[in-house]
Design a binder for these strands. Sequence first.
DNA 1: GTGAAAGCGCTAACAA
DNA 2: TTGTTAGCGCTTTCAC
Lengths: 336, 336
Amino acid sequence: MNQNRSTPTRKDVAQLAGVSETIVSYVLNNNRYVAQEKRIRVLQAVKQLHYHPNTVARALRGKKSNHILFIADNISNEHFGKIVEEMDRIAYDKGYLISLLADRNDSEFVAQVNSRLVDGIVISSTGFEEKYVMDLIQSEVPMVLLMNREYNMVGNKASRIYTGLQQGVKECVKLLVEKGRRNILYIDRVSQHHRYSTTDDLRYNGFCTQMAEYGLPVSSENVISGYRSEEELYVGLQNRIHNGLKVDGIVGRNDNLACVAMAAVMACGLKVPQDISIIGFDNSRMSNYVKPTLTSMEIDRTGIARAIITMLDEMIAGNPPSVQAFDTKLIEREST
Amino acid sequence: MNQNRSTPTRKDVAQLAGVSETIVSYVLNNNRYVAQEKRIRVLQAVKQLHYHPNTVARALRGKKSNHILFIADNISNEHFGKIVEEMDRIAYDKGYLISLLADRNDSEFVAQVNSRLVDGIVISSTGFEEKYVMDLIQSEVPMVLLMNREYNMVGNKASRIYTGLQQGVKECVKLLVEKGRRNILYIDRVSQHHRYSTTDDLRYNGFCTQMAEYGLPVSSENVISGYRSEEELYVGLQNRIHNGLKVDGIVGRNDNLACVAMAAVMACGLKVPQDISIIGFDNSRMSNYVKPTLTSMEIDRTGIARAIITMLDEMIAGNPPSVQAFDTKLIEREST
DNA sequence: GTGAAAGCGCTAACAA
DNA sequence: TTGTTAGCGCTTTCAC
C-alpha cells in the first residue's frame, strides 16, 4: 500500500489556501457556493501541490471510484488490446482507470468483483455464464455488454453494444457465394475447455442464418469445431480434406484461425484464391502480411470504445441502459 | 459507484456468526488468537455470505489494496497482451487486480497515479521519461521495471527485469553474419511523436554493440529510423533501395516491423532468404503465417509475468528490490 | 456562505 | 482471549 506521506491531502490544500477542509471539497465538487476569492485560493493551492482527491477515500464515502472493470475471456488478442487502448485514451481524460480481468465461472468471482467498488463493468466474453452476469447486474453497477453472444435474461438491465459480428459474418458468406462458392466452411474457435460455439454465438449464428438464406446446408461437415489448439486444427483440417471433404470457401471466426485454415488448405495443394476463397474477421495486422493477403472484416473499435465510455457515463449519471449497433467494413484482399 | 446494499459487510458476518466485528477481522487477517469455535463460526458465515472484505476500505485504512498498476506505452500489442494475461492468471489467485494505463509524460499523470492507492506499479515503456519514473519511486510504491531501456537514476530503488532484448538482438546480428550477411539494416520503431530509439534502447543498443564487435559500421545508412507510420516506412525503405542502398540482412525491432520491411524488399524484387535474410522479434503469431515464414526471437513471457508478481509480492512484504534476467530463444524459420 | 461532525468499512492500538 | 475506540481521506447533512 502507498505509504507515501508526501502525497498531499485535502488538509494540506486547506492549510495552504487558508480555508477549512470543507471549503476545499465544495470547490472541487463544485456543489456549493463558495466566495470567489476563496475559490481562487483553493484552486491555486490545488495546482501548486498537484493535489488529486484520494480516489479510494472518495469511493468508500460513496462517490465515484473512477474505476472501470473490463471482464473478458481473451485479454491477449489484438482486437481486445486495441479496444482497451482506445478506451484508455478517452477514459484517462475523464479520470477513469481501467482494470482487466479474465472471467472465471464461479460465484467467488462475482464476490471478488463486488468487493471492489467499481463505477462500471464491461463484459466481452462468450464463455462467461449468464447467471454470473445476472449476479453482477444485481449489485446495480452500471454494465455494458459487448454482444459476442445473445443473452436471454439480461433484458434491458445492461447497456448493449452490437459490434457487427452477426451482420459481418453474413456479409462474409454473401461475398463467398457471389464468388460462386458453395462448399463453405466455418472455422470455429479452438478451446482447451470444450467451449465451442453454440447458436448463441453471434458469429456462428450469422453463418448459419446466411447459409440457410441461400439454402446451403450447415452441418458437422462444414462447421469445423472441436479442436483444442491451432495445431490440432491445422492437422485436422488437412485430414478432413484428404478424406474427401469438399471445400471452396472458408469463413474464419477471426483472422488468426483463417490463417491457420489457409495454411492447411495450401498444404493440401489447393490454390488461394483460385481453388478456394478465404475470409477472416477483425482485420488485424497479420492480414496484410500473410501470403496471399487476407480479406477480412474490420470492426469499428474506436467507435465501440467511445460508445462504451459514453454509455457508462450516462448510466453513472443515472440514465437507463441503452443499445447501440455498429457496422463492420469489408476489406478485400488477395485471398478472395 | 456501487450502490449495492446486498453486498455483505463485516457487520453481517459478525451478526451471522454471533461474534463482534473485530473478531471477524482477526480471523480473516489471521493475526490474533481467536477461540477455535468462534473462528469456525466466522469462516462458515464468510462462506455462506460469499463475504469478501471491502478492498477499498482496506486500502484506505492502510492495508493492501490488492491492486497492481501496469503502465505501458503500447497496450495493444500481442506481446504486452500475453504478459498481462499471464499476470492475471497468477495474480487472481492472490487476490490482485491489474489495471492498465498508457503513460503520459507530465506530472499530472504522476499525481493521478498517486491518488490511487496501488500496491505495486509495473512499467514497460521506452518513452516514459525517467524523471516521472523517479517521481513515482519517491512515493515508495513497490515498482518493477521491464528494462526496454536503460535508466540512469533508478539504481536499486526498483526491481528490474531484463527481458533479453539486448542479448536477443545481438544474437540476431550474429545469425545474419554467420549466414554471410554484411549489409545489415536495423528497423527502428515508427512514431508520430518523434520518439525514436536512442542508445538507451536496449534493442538498438544490442544492434550497435554486436555490429561494432564484428567491425561493421552503424550509421544513418543502415539504421532505418524516423518514419511516422508503417506505410511511410514501407515506401521509404523501397526508395532507399532504389537509390542504391545495399542490403542483404534485416533485423526488425519487432515482428510487425520486420514484416513491413520484408514486404518492402520483396516489392523491390529481392528474394527472401536467397538475396536477403530477415529476422523479427517477439515470435508473435504472424511470424508463422507470413510468406516466407519469419525467423524470430521468442521472449519468455510466462517467466516474466511470474517474476513480476513474485518481485512485487516480495517488495510488498518489505524485502528490497531485486534484479532478474531472461534469455530469448531463436525460432528459425524460412526468412533466414 | 461556512464549519462541525457523522460515517463509508475496515485495521490495530489499547484496555480489559 | 476479546471488545472498545480512534482514525484512514473524503462527502454531505445540519446547524450557524
